[in-house]
Amino acid sequence: MRRVLLAVAALLPLAAGVVLAVLGRAGRLPGERLFLSALPGDWALAAGAALSLLAVVALGTAGLRDRTWRRRLADRVAEAGQDRRLLLSRLDHELKNPLTAMRAATANLAAVADPAQDAAVGTIEEQVLRLSRLTTDLRKIADIESARIDRRPVDLTDLIEEMVDVARDLPGAAEREISVDLPRAPWPLPPVPGDADLLSLAVANLLDNALKYTPPGGRVEVRAREAAGEVLVEVADTGQGIPPDELPQVWEEMYRSPSARAVPGSGLGLPLVRAVVERHGGHVHADSRVGSGTLVRLALPV
C-alpha cells in the first residue's frame, strides 16, 4: 500500500507536466511563448537534479521496504521463539505427572519385586530418572532465555580457574592434560556483568564436553583474553572433532551427532551454553576438524 502511494507521489510532477502540456496545446494557457534562455550547463544541472531526485525516491522506497521486511522477519523469529518456549513449557508440564506416577510405581515395584527382576526395575528407574532430568533441563534452557538474570561484575579468572578445578575431579580427567592460559599482564581479564552461577554452568559444560570427546592422552586447553570490548573464552580439545555439516546443529536442543552416539549425553549442553551466553548479550562460535579436535569460543561483552 505504502509502495503504491510512493509510486503515485513520484509520478505526480510528471502527471502535472502532462496536464499542463495538454492544456497548453488546447489553448487554455496563455498562448505567447516564454523565451527562457539557459546555458547547456544549466540544462545539465536540471537533468542531474531530476535524476538525483528519482534516485533518492527509489532508494527511499527500497529502504522502507527493507525495514518493513526486516521488522517482519524479526517478528517471525520472536514469534517462533515464543512458540518454542510455549511448546517446551507445555511438554514439560504434560510430562511431569506421568513421570511422577512412574517414579512412584517403580519405587513400589522395587520394594516387592523378586531379585530376578532387579535388573529390569533398575533399568526402568534409571531411564525414568533420565527422562525427568531431560524435561527439567529443557525447561531450564527456556527459562534462561526468558527469565531476568543477575547482572553483577563477574571475575572470569576466578570463575574459570574454579571450574577447571572441578573438571580435574571428573572421571577420566586424570588421563587428559588440561592447561589453562589466562592473562595476568599487562592486566587481568576485566569483570563481565552477569550471573556468576549461569556463567559457571556454561564454562563447566564446555569443559565437560571437551573431556568427554577427547580420548585418553589428549589435551584440553582453556584460554581467555580481552578483545574489542569483549572477553573471549576458548575451550579447545584434541578430540574426535565434528564434521563441518554438523557444526551448526550442535547448538540446537537435543541434536546428537551420529558419530557421537557412543558418548552418553542429552544434547542439551551446548544449547544451554548458547542460551546463557546470548542472555548475556554475547555470542558463541565453534570450529572443528574431524580427527584433530574442536574449539568453542564464547564472546561476552564487558
Binding site: 525427568s132 532430568r133 527439567t136 533441563d137 531450564k140 527459562d143 574454579e162 571450574m163 578445578d165 572441578v166 571428573l170 556468576a196 552461577d197 559457571s200 554452568l201 563447566a204 559444560n205 565437560d208 544451554l272
Partner: peptide, 16 residues
C-alpha cells in the same frame, strides 16, 4: 534454590 538438575555444577553451591 537454582532450579537446576545439571549434575556438573554442584560446586556452584559451594561457591554460594
Amino acid at each position: 534454590v537454582w532450579g537446576w538438575s545439571f549434575h556438573t555444577s554442584t560446586r556452584t553451591v559451594d561457591t554460594r
